[in-house]
């Protein structure tokens, strides 16, 4: 059993939790993920590591309530326990030798982009962060990003906060203004990563994206997380989750995550109804 040390609501649908898992905290690196189960009957879901504290033995996860399992997780309070928490899985994000990087985060993907921006900043790289959200109420981690970024551009789709538009608009503006990046690291919805990658391909800037497909074991055993990268089949759990954005087949990846859409919607509604009845 794994104890929830701290729980903070970041916006109406996004929550941050610190979980006591010293063995995972000891090894965790930005870009890696964990798999958890809320209770003994639960589903296994992967979540990328948002932060860790090796001394306290805690690992931070940030999740958006999108389905039955995250809804169930969100019912847990500080001091309570979840049944399983395993990791760190996948390969860490490679930051070695990077001197100037554009970090692009979209929505809850910013939770994963932040520790990478932080690591780059700590190693002395110049970090330009573009953080995009649908609307003002959904903005998370702004202060944290500001502390580790040499330049921070906040974007909202509706213009209710920061600049109006998509992250690609901001990135294009920076590239057009002559900024030269060793690499662009883009983390967010698949559609965002697809368009960021398409843009940077035009400009010839290497781009790394973090993939978060459907998974069960997270150790390579099931193959459910497979995707096509440069014409080859890769397993996100052992070969990734980071891949060259110019080589990923995003259309296929977007399609594959929709496999259980109707099931998930049904489960989510069922879970919510259960909660409503209980209240």
């Amino acid at each position: 059993m794994f104890k929830i040390l701290k729980k903070v609501s970041l916006n109406p649908t996004v929550t941050r939790m610190d979980i006591y898992a010293p063995a995972v905290a000891k090894k965790a690196q930005p870009g890696q993920f964990i798999i958890l189960r809320v209770d003994s009957e639960g589903e296994r879901i992967p979540l990328t590591i948002a932060d860790y504290d090796r001394e306290k033995g805690s690992v931070t996860i940030i999740y958006q309530i999108v389905g039955a399992t995250t809804a169930l997780l969100d019912r847990k309070a500080e001091g309570e326990y979840i049944s399983d928490f395993v990791g760190p899985l996948g390969k860490p994000t490679e930051t070695e030798g990077l001197k100037k990087v554009a970090v692009v985060g979209g929505g809850v993907g910013c939770a994963i982009a932040y520790p990478i921006a932080k690591k780059l900043h700590e190693q002395g790289a110049e970090v330009h962060t573009i953080a995009g959200f649908r609307t003002k109420d959904l903005v998370i981690l702004e202060d944290e990003f500001r502390a580790v970024s040499d330049k921070l551009v906040m974007m909202t789709d509706d213009g209710s906060y920061g600049e109006k538009g998509l992250v690609t608009n901001a990135l294009k503006a920076l590239l057009d203004s002559g900024e030269q990046y060793d690499e662009v690291i883009a983390i967010g919805p698949l559609i965002m990563m697809k368009f960021v990658s398409a843009l940077t391909k035009e400009y010839g800037v290497k781009t790394v994206v973090s993939m978060n497909p459907i998974m069960i074991d997270g150790t390579g055993m099931c193959g459910g997380c497979r995707l096509t990268v440069g014409g080859e089949v890769k397993f996100a759990c052992v070969d990734g989750p980071d891949f060259d954005g110019h080589l990923v087949d995003f259309d296929e990846a977007m399609d594959r995550v929709s496999m259980y859409k109707s099931f998930e919607k049904h489960e989510y509604e069922k879970t919510c109804n259960l909660f409503k009845k209980a209240e």
């Binding site: 099931c222 497979r226 089949v233 397993f235 594959r256």
Partner: peptide, 18 residues
């Protein structure tokens, strides 16, 4: 370890499992 696939077209469609 890791499941093998055949390397044929369509193996990443929804409804294909190892």
């Amino acid at each position: 370890g890791l499941p093998r696939f055949m390397g044929i077209k369509g193996e990443n469609l929804k409804g294909v499992y190892s």
